Amino acid sequence: MGTVARSVIVNRSPITGLTKHVIAELVAEIGPLWDAQRCRRLSGRPRQRAPGAGARYELVFVDRLLATLVHLRHGVTHDLLACWFSVDRSTMTRAIGAIRPLPARRGCVVGPGIRMRTLADVVDHLGASGQSAIIDATEIRVRRPAPGSDGRDRYISGKSKQNAVKVLVVTDAQGRLLFGGALKPGSCPDITQTGGQVITPPHRKFKKNAPTWWEERFAQQRKALSSRRIRVEHGIAHLKNWRALSRHLGRCELLTELVPAIAGLASIHRQPPQPDPAG
């Protein structure tokens, strides 16, 4: 069953949102990171086994990566994934927990060999290329912290009146994702999350009996602002297409890994097709 699941996931792009070529690139890039992480974990133990000793993994690296992608894309439970790959639920939970932090290290793909991992990288890239960016903040619903925990009320959003975490999203003028992260509790206002770099909608000067010329001008101003902001809204929508971010049911600390990882994967999905060198 594991072989069948692997074949279906790789050959049907709607399951992961990524093509088989992109998955192959992820395997080649993340595989060495996972192997290095595993070696560090094993060498850090006081008692070490001889090379090649010990039980064999029930899940090979490729299956671990595919299961993690499906989990992030569609929010599939560990129980169901364990059935697909014919392993125990605990095995699947450990596998996803080990793979999940690795895509976050890749950053957002802007072009061949260009990665945006931090806000500083984004600022440097924009300064060097002379481009502009669009910044916005979005909310991800989370579980309310346990009673008695520190800062429990800080996650209540004043806008949605729900427990949420604010995420900063940066896109370029074409709507290509440059950064996703810089998490803040839901009580943090958007203007604070974006560092004050916000252009607010124009305010109504007349509440009643506004002149016709003012209504026309007001509508034009709002339309111009919406035309600029729609790019970052599209970027946020592509993030939320990954069900792991539509509503997070795990621990809030995991979002520091999930958001950058999914932002990087979504940036790959939004890359324009590259021309075939063979013609």
Rank of each mutant, 00 (worst) to 15 (best):
G54W: 14
R176L: 13
S157N: 11
A219C: 09
I99K: 02
G175T: 10
G180Y: 01
Q48H: 13
I262L: 05
F61Q: 06
A24M: 08
E58P: 00
Q197F: 15
A82I: 04
Q221M: 14
Q174F: 01
T77W: 06
R204E: 12
P272A: 12
V123F: 07
G130C: 02
Q274P: 04
T3N: 12
K205S: 06
P46H: 04
A95L: 08
R106S: 08
P201I: 02
L177Y: 03
A146P: 05
A120C: 06
R117M: 02
A210I: 08
R64T: 01
Q197K: 11
I30E: 03
P189K: 07
E216G: 01
R229I: 10
W214R: 09
L168W: 00
L102W: 09
I230F: 07
F218S: 02
A164K: 04
A50V: 10
T171D: 04
A146H: 11
H238L: 13
R143A: 10
R247V: 04
P277F: 07
R64P: 00
I191R: 14
P112R: 12
L254T: 12
L18G: 07
T68A: 11
G127T: 06
A36Y: 10
T91G: 10
Q174C: 10
T138C: 12
G54Q: 09
R152P: 01
M116I: 10
D88R: 12
P46L: 05
L42K: 15
L33Y: 02
R143Y: 01
L177M: 10
I23Q: 12
L178W: 09
Q197S: 11
E139K: 06
P147A: 11
Q37T: 07
K207V: 03
C108L: 02
G195Y: 11
T200Q: 14
L178C: 05
S226P: 00
S43F: 10
C83H: 06
S187G: 06
Q48P: 01
T171C: 15
L255A: 07
A67Q: 02
A173E: 14
A55T: 11
P202Q: 10
A244W: 00
A120D: 15
I140F: 08
V62W: 01
L26H: 06
V22R: 09
R247Q: 13
M1R: 15
Q162A: 12
G54M: 09
L65R: 03
T256A: 14
P273S: 14
A104E: 03
A244F: 00
A146W: 04
G151C: 04
L177W: 01
G44P: 02
Q271R: 15
N163C: 15
L80I: 12
R176F: 05
L69Q: 06
R243N: 11
Y155R: 03
G107P: 06
D121T: 09
A210N: 07
N11H: 13
V10P: 00
K161A: 15
D63Y: 05
D276Q: 02
D63S: 10
T16E: 04
A173H: 13
P147V: 08
A53N: 03
A210W: 05
L254K: 07
P32M: 07
R229G: 03
G279V: 08
R229D: 03
I134Q: 08
G54D: 09
G111H: 02
T200I: 07
K207H: 12
T192Q: 13
D35Y: 04
V27W: 13
P277Y: 06
D136N: 13
T192W: 00
N11M: 12
G52T: 08
